[in-house]
Design a protein around this nucleic acid. Structure first.
Lengths: 224, 224
DNA sequence: TGCTTTAATGACCTGAAAGTCATTTACTAG
DNA sequence: CTAGTAAATGACTTTCAGGTCATTAAAGCA
């Protein structure tokens, strides 16, 4: 019987991150309620009791996962979109919008980010304060930044009038829909939508308009 | 001590519907996993054991809720949008699309429908066959119908080229986003988006284009 | 009015998973 | 080398909700 080394190591610094990583996998696969702490512990290579050295409850672990995964994604999207609050002009809106959507598509292409988004939607009612954090720190700032940029474009006469906030929904809604579609129907639909393609085509459609300006097909004109 | 009548009544026909109704309320409030059958039973005015006379398991009850609530909503949307599979021409796409979005907004304005949608998104991983049913019977048909209508409009030269399916995402994504926003942030955001407003403004924006064609604001032109 | 049927009950059973803690053992300071 | 510390363990406790079933009683019928 070979005893290669100590049965376990003391790794106070590395443990929490590993636990969060493992928790993300298990939560994403089964959802919050159906995820078992034993599974998470096993995947993290620790005993269940060890989880409680770093997280008080299952919910605390869940919240740590959300914060850990999402915070970088949010700042990355805003950075890629290059939407500074009060910065200098950063190009015409017709160029900013596709950049923003492309950046969002890239961020949401990571299944980890998309899975967290799906889980928050599913669990918001179970954890009202999670919904509050998400609203105040993620969705709110993102929506406000986009709406502010749209309002600037409206002031410059670039963009059609209307509620900037609603325009923001117009802009990013399809991407959210495609993301959720991929998450919900993974394994059911063999041909899920491609986020980059949706982002590109939607940017084009929304900016330029879906309707073609009465280009007669040279054939169906009523003969008079 | 007044004994007004029998302790309970036999109502084989009315029970299931009442149970589904109560179950919807409790599921919508707490999510599937956190919903207690005792609560559902109490709200339905029956004992827990009675639930098992009509539904084999908690999951069966959940599925009954989904089917009961969604089926009418789906057919109503398609009816309001007046998108027959092979029917006669039903007006230019520029008129059909707003009608479709308005109908969808109306259907999704019922919190019951929206709550079910949110729950399916949240629970799809826990119940893979629920995701399959939802895909095959709800989302798939709806998306296909809309995409088919868009393809017809493209063939007629009304609509810009591009994947019809992606165009369908462009069309309905913002409404889904607004619906989920309302569901997730109910109680957190005091000023949620109005679905009818989002539908109307988005239809306008998407069809006509968000970008204004270089209308000089008569003031900021560089003076040369 | 009594008999049969079966809808309905609710106390109970049971499995499962969150959370605890006395014990073990890796590490470190002296 | 030794003693002190605290990271880590995993068997145990506790809680709780899904599911069962022997019993009750409402309704239909002769």
């Amino acid at each position: 019987m070979n005893e290669a080394g100590p049965r376990w190591r003391r790794r106070k610094e590395a443990r929490p991150a590993e636990m969060i990583e493992a928790a993300l996998d298990v939560f994403a696969e089964h959802g919050f309620a159906a995820a078992k702490l034993d599974d998470i512990a096993r995947r993290a290579g620790v005993a269940k009791g060890s989880l409680y050295l770093y997280f008080d409850t299952k919910e605390a672990l869940f919240r740590a996962v959300v914060e850990q995964i999402i915070a970088p994604a949010v700042s990355r999207v805003l950075a890629m979109a290059q939407i500074p609050e009060e910065g200098p002009q950063n190009g015409p809106f017709a160029e900013v919008a596709p950049r923003l959507l492309a950046g969002a598509a890239l961020a949401l292409s990571q299944d980890r980010v998309a899975a967290v988004a799906r889980m928050v939607i599913g669990e918001a009612r179970t954890f009202p304060d999670l919904a509050r954090v998400w609203h105040d720190q993620v969705v709110g700032p993102l929506l406000s930044a986009v709406a502010a940029r749209i309002a600037r474009a409206q002031a410059a006469g670039e963009v059609r009038p209307g509620s900037p906030r609603t325009h923001a929904f117009s802009l990013v809604g399809p991407l959210l829909m495609a993301t959720l579609y991929r998450q919900v129907f993974a394994g059911v639909d063999a041909d899920p939508p491609d986020l980059a393609q949706v982002a590109a085509q939607h940017a084009q459609s929304l900016l330029q308009g879906l309707i073609l300006p009465a280009t007669p097909p040279a054939k169906e004109l009523p003969d008079d």
